[in-house]
Amino acid sequence: MAISTTPLIHLSSVTKEYPLGNTTVHALRGVDLTVSKGDFMSIVGPSGSGKTTLLNIIGCIDQATSGSVVIDGQEITTMNDKQITDLRLYKIGFIFQTFNLIPVLNVIENVEFPLLLMKTFSKTEVRSRAERLIEAVGLSEHSQHRPAELSGGQRQRVAIARALVTQPAIILADEPTANLDSETGNQILELMRDLNQKEHTTFIFSTHDHNVLAYAKKIVKIKDGLITE
């Protein structure tokens, strides 16, 4: 199946400033970026370069100080909280650096969580989707375990399953392998690449890890709040 080249994400002259004591930090200084559907993109740069800020703005977690951010044809800078929340629910999946699972829910319940928020699927459908993805990330035997009973790699896989369960158009991953050993990190990257190839899900991840860069189809370098290449 041919991958559409229609821009899924388009950022134009995006700036992000925030106060820090008596000074203002210019995290992004006018970023222009276009991401197409099916991209497997890595954002790289040194610490403090603005990678996470850029990812947060794309993921509607943070708001740009100025500029335009269009996700799947919708300008998000003018949206209210409810619209942005729904956009995150239906269009974007997140894989955080520190796993961020709901501690009181077990593996399968964590994966089901976004689907249950949608309230559009039957209980059976929710369960079967979650089970399918848990199997895909190799955690079927741990489906009843709570996050505290899992290793770091296992939790990250649960986070991936949860990010994918709603079949979002975009998955954002902030340093997805930062807290994993290299073997687990590679397994996770393989899994993401598989999904990108099979489902054409757009992946954008920030990283310092050269190993991760080897998987990326596109690399965007960022330094001092500006995209350099």
Binding site: T85, L89, Y90, L101, I102, F113, M118
Partner: peptide, 16 residues
Amino acid sequence: VSEIGMMRAVGARKGF
């Protein structure tokens, strides 16, 4: 904060 912020990130509304 982590738990609630994460819930919000994955699509939980304020009402939830």
